[in-house]
Simulated scan of single mutants.
Amino acid sequence: MKAHSKAQQHAAGAALSAKRGDTKVGDLQGASKEMYHSMSEIELEELASTNTKNLPDRANED
């Protein structure tokens, strides 16, 4: 699964950092906190590794 925006990729990276123990879970906010609780480390790694070159800053909320 690839990230749909730079914001989603960034949130996944923060959640992955907490999942690996590099960041405190209490420091997470919003989407990254939800991702931490609902996704596996492998899923987070896939999202966080998405190339951001052609991604929008934020995804459209339709």
Rank of each mutant, 00 (worst) to 15 (best):
R20I: 05
T50G: 07
A59Y: 05
G21S: 01
A31N: 13
A12D: 09
K33D: 15
K19W: 02
Y36A: 08
A59M: 10
A59F: 07
A59N: 05
K53E: 15
D57L: 03
S40I: 03
A11G: 12
S32H: 05
E34Y: 09
D62Y: 01
E45S: 10
H4M: 08
L28C: 11
A59C: 10
E46K: 09
N60F: 03
Y36R: 01
L47Q: 04
E61M: 06
Y36I: 08
D57C: 01
A7H: 02
V25N: 01
S32L: 02
S17N: 07
E61I: 06
A3N: 02
L44V: 06
R20N: 14
Y36T: 08
D27F: 09
Y36L: 05
A14C: 07
K6R: 15
K24N: 15
K2C: 07
Y36K: 06
T23V: 07
A48H: 05
T52V: 14
A48K: 01
L28W: 08
S17W: 00
K19F: 00
V25C: 01
A31R: 13
H4D: 13
A48E: 13
G21E: 01
H10P: 00
M35Q: 12
K24A: 14
K2L: 11
T23L: 03
M35E: 06
A48W: 05
E46G: 02
N51H: 05
E61Q: 10
G13I: 00
E41T: 10
D22F: 09
K2S: 13
S38T: 15
A14Y: 00
L28I: 11
Y36D: 09
L55P: 05
A7E: 15
E43N: 05
T52E: 13
G13Q: 06
L28N: 12
T50V: 06
N60L: 11
T50R: 07
A18P: 01
E45M: 03
V25T: 14
T50W: 00
Q29E: 12
A48M: 07
H37S: 14
G30D: 09
E46V: 08
L28F: 10
M35F: 13
K19P: 04
Q8F: 01
G21A: 10
K2Q: 14
S49C: 00
G26W: 05
M1P: 10
E41N: 03
S38P: 00
M1Q: 04
A18H: 00
D22N: 12
D27G: 15
N60K: 08
P56A: 09
L16T: 06
G26I: 04
M1A: 12
M39N: 10
L16E: 07
I42F: 04
E46D: 08
H37M: 09
N51I: 03
T23R: 10
K53Q: 14
N51E: 13
